[in-house]
């Protein structure tokens, strides 16, 4: 049952409860890095990796250290854990592979301040997920975020040559597209219920 639950949460996090398009989290890097599909894939992969692992680490920190008396400290503790984790991952990638570092490394500092990462850890607490479910939720949310940014990059590459009103160029049109995408994703809602 737990396993099935985790599976459902994984898919729900990608489609019905996409953290970017239904919760509108992680907007900053979503808008600034979605100009090209190639860089979007890089950032998406890095976000997925960090989200999956930090949700697992934060689950352990929350349940073994903060419960029962100190749950109000979760905001600070989660942020600190995420920041430290990202730093160490960056060092490891740099050491192990220059090519992977060139592809992912530049995005890692951006991720430290990506609110979607903190959002995943906080939802996991609110929805009272088990460890497996939290990991599945983190992984699914990361993939969902990646899906959304790649879709956005595809659209932005297409509209590059389109006549866009001057005032809407750049972030303006991107926000409108994100809104339309979010509406499209509403079509998935209700298929799977989580939390």
């Amino acid at each position: 049952m737990t396993f099935l639950g985790a599976f459902a949460i994984f898919f729900a996090a990608i489609f019905t409860n996409n953290i970017l398009l239904t919760n509108y989290l992680g907007m900053c890097s979503f808008i600034s890095v979605s100009r090209e599909i190639k860089t979007s894939v890089g950032l998406g992969a890095a976000v997925t990796f960090v989200m999956a692992l930090t949700s697992a680490i934060n689950w352990a920190v929350y349940h073994y250290l903060l419960v029962p008396h100190l749950v109000y400290l979760r905001f600070i503790v989660f942020i600190v854990v995420i920041a430290a984790f990202v730093q160490i991952v960056e060092m490891i990638i740099e050491r192990v592979s220059d090519v992977l570092y060139a592809a992912l490394g530049i995005f890692l500092p951006l991720i430290t301040v990506n609110c979607a990462i903190l959002g995943v850890s906080l939802f996991m607490v609110i929805r009272d997920y088990t460890f497996i479910q939290s990991f599945a939720f983190g992984l699914g949310s990361g993939l969902g975020w990646m899906l959304a940014i790649i879709a956005m990059a595809g659209i932005r590459q297409k509209i590059n040559k389109s006549p866009i009103p001057k005032g809407l160029e750049g972030a303006g049109i991107t926000l409108i597209i994100a809104g339309i995408m979010a509406m499209a994703f509403v079509g998935f809602s209700g298929m799977i219920a989580i939390g």
């Binding site: 400290l73 503790v77 430290a84 060092m91």
Partner: peptide
């Protein structure tokens, strides 16, 4: 607890800086 978490993470960072980086 907050200090302990920060201390452990800082220690990890220092170790990583001395070894990995």
């Amino acid at each position: 607890i907050l200090s302990a978490v920060s201390a452990v993470l800082s220690l990890l960072m220092v170790i990583a800086d001395r070894t990995i980086a």
